[in-house]
């Protein structure tokens, strides 16, 4: 796992805030310290409003790092994201980061890389794809294949970015309005052949049911899977033990031991 760098407590300026799809937003923040330290898979912990409503911060994966700016990509899910979506360009946002462990990758990178995203789960995978692309540029034998699943065509996110970064991009929509009709996990099953096996690393993020299905598929094909997981996170620093998940080594904190876990280690009820 990557070494944890310094953590910054910042009031950052919102450089841009775009509504990129129904209920989906992209926010760019000026945060040079975080941009310098961040690793793919890490997150920032955001106070969406002043005061105590809502009380807790909200965690967001770092979507991209461009020079001195960081981006987050999010979907309105509840009160916190609803309030965040109303924040305006030029305003200051209270954030802590970068937090968490990040996706493991590097020199000894496996030959085949699969990126599997379900909906907003694409958020951390673009930053990862950019880093993997840098490795690929030095070591051209690597194949990066992205599988992107969405409900309908309107919710297909980051297709262009993926096409620029990956060897191949496959898309699925649940209603068949774009690409393969069905779930991204079905698309994954169709795409896998026995030669994928032990030389493949799969990175993923998305809904729980998708991750559970990927775990089953990965088991059959003996693929190593690293997934970014979610829980209700309070402190974000590993202090309160509130965001644990069950693993083979007992309870682990999503905010500090994760959010990225080897799926083989994770025990779901």
């Amino acid at each position: 796992m990557s070494e944890i760098g310094k953590i910054f407590y910042l009031k950052t300026r919102i450089i841009s805030h775009l509504n990129i799809a129904p209920q989906h937003f992209k926010m760019i923040l000026e945060a040079p310290q975080i941009a310098k330290e961040a690793k793919p898979g890490q997150f920032i912990h955001v106070k969406v409003s002043e005061g105590i409503n809502p009380l807790l911060r909200r965690p967001f994966s770092i979507h991209r790092v461009i020079d001195k700016e960081i981006e987050i990509l999010y979907k309105i899910r509840g009160k916190g994201t609803e309030i965040l979506s109303q924040r305006k360009e030029g305003e200051l946002l209270d954030i802590i980061g970068p937090l968490g462990n990040g996706f493991p990758f590097g020199e000894e990178q496996n030959k085949n890389i699969l990126l599997v995203a379900g909906g907003i789960g694409i958020a951390p995978l673009i930053f990862l794809a950019e880093k993997l692309r840098e490795i690929k540029n030095q070591k051209s034998k690597i194949k990066i294949i992205a599988l992107l699943g969405a409900k309908t065509k309107d919710f297909v996110l980051c297709e262009k970015e993926l096409k620029d970064l990956c060897t191949e991009v496959k898309i699925s929509t649940e209603d068949g309005s774009y690409g393969f009709k069905g779930l991204v996990t079905e698309l994954l099953k169709n795409s896998l052949t026995p030669d994928y096996s032990s030389l493949t690393t799969l990175y993923t993020a998305g809904p729980l049911l998708m991750l559970q299905e990927i775990k089953k598929i990965a088991n059959i094909f003996k693929i190593l899977v690293f997934a970014s997981l979610e829980e209700n996170i309070a402190c974000g620093l590993g202090g309160c033990l509130g965001c644990v998940i069950k693993t083979k080594q007992g309870y682990k904190r999503v905010c500090k031991d994760g959010p990225v876990f080897n799926l083989e280690e994770v025990l779901w009820e």
Binding site: I52, L56, N232, A234, C240, L241, G242, C243, V244, K246
Partner: peptide, 21 residues
């Protein structure tokens, strides 16, 4: 400690069931 979820946000508060892990 207790099984997750261990933290739920409430109106101006949080409910926790960490369980003295």
């Amino acid at each position: 400690g207790n099984p997750p979820p261990r933290i739920v946000e409430t109106a101006s508060g949080i409910l926790n069931s960490i369980g003295l892990q």
